[in-house]
Simulated scan of single mutants.
Amino acid sequence: MSAKLEHAVLSLLEENARIELDQIATMLDEDKEIIIQIVDELEKKGVIVKYGTLINWQKASTKKVAALIDVKVTPQRGHGFDAIAKRIYLFPEVRSVYLMSGSYDLSVALEVDSMEAVGKFVTEKLAPIDSVVSTMTHFVMKKYKEDGVILDEPEKDERLVITP
C-alpha cells in the first residue's frame, strides 16, 4: 500500500468522518476493497484513533465552559513528564493534555458544564498532585475556529437593498 494513498484516505476522513468508504474509493479512483483494507489497517495500527463530531457549543441549547490550564510540574525520576500527564489525562473532564515548551510544562484542555467545575477540578484534582508546582487557568471566552472549521461565520444579511 502506498503512503500517498494512505495519506489521501486519512485526509478525506479527517475532513469528514461520516464519508462512506465507497465514496472515498470513487474520489480516489481506487477499488472499494483496497480502501476498506487501508482503513482497517490504519485502525489496527492506531493511526485512526477515533471518528468524531465537532459541536459548536456556543450555538447549542446546552452550554459548555472551555478552559486551558497551564501546569508547571516537577518531572518524576525515571518517568519525566509522562507519569504526571497520565494521571491528569485519566480525569474524565480532561479533553487534551500536551507537553509544552516555554514557561509551563503541560497544557490541559477542559470542557465542563460551569466555571465552578473548572475551579473544582483545579483545586480538588489537579493542584493536589505532588509534582504540580503551579497552575494558570485561562477561560475560553469564544471559539472562532476549531479543528480547521470556522465557527463564527457572520450571518448573511437577507434584506433587500433599496436605494433612493
Results as ranks from 00 to 15, higher is better:
Ala3Phe: 10
Ala3Glu: 13
Lys4Leu: 04
Lys4Met: 08
Lys4Trp: 02
Ala8Met: 09
Ala8Lys: 13
Leu10Phe: 05
Leu12Ile: 04
Leu12Ser: 05
Glu14Ala: 15
Glu15Asp: 12
Asn16Pro: 02
Asn16Asp: 15
Arg18Glu: 08
Arg18Tyr: 14
Arg18Asp: 10
Ile19Phe: 01
Asp22Val: 05
Asp22Ala: 01
Ala25Val: 05
Ala25Trp: 06
Thr26Gly: 01
Met27Leu: 13
Met27Thr: 03
Asp29Glu: 13
Asp31Lys: 15
Lys32Met: 00
Lys32Arg: 14
Lys32Ser: 01
Glu33Ile: 12
Ile34Leu: 15
Gln37Trp: 11
Val39Lys: 09
Glu41Cys: 03
Leu42Phe: 07
Glu43His: 02
Glu43Pro: 00
Glu43Val: 15
Lys44His: 10
Gly46Gln: 11
Val49Asn: 05
Val49Asp: 05
Lys50Met: 05
Lys50Tyr: 10
Thr53Phe: 10
Thr53Gly: 05
Thr53Val: 15
Leu54His: 07
Leu54Ser: 04
Asn56Ile: 02
Trp57Gly: 00
Lys59Tyr: 08
Ala60Tyr: 09
Lys63Ile: 03
Ala66Trp: 02
Ala67Thr: 04
Leu68Met: 09
Ile69Ser: 05
Thr74Ala: 09
Thr74Trp: 03
Gln76Ala: 12
Arg77Met: 11
Phe81Trp: 04
Ile88Val: 14
Val94Ser: 07
Arg95Ser: 10
Val97Asn: 02
Tyr98Asp: 11
Leu99Gln: 08
Leu99Glu: 06
Ser103Pro: 00
Tyr104Asn: 08
Tyr104Gly: 00
Asp105Met: 01
Leu106Gln: 03
Val108Ile: 15
Leu110His: 03
Leu110Tyr: 05
Leu110Cys: 09
Val112Met: 07
Ser114Arg: 09
Ser114Val: 08
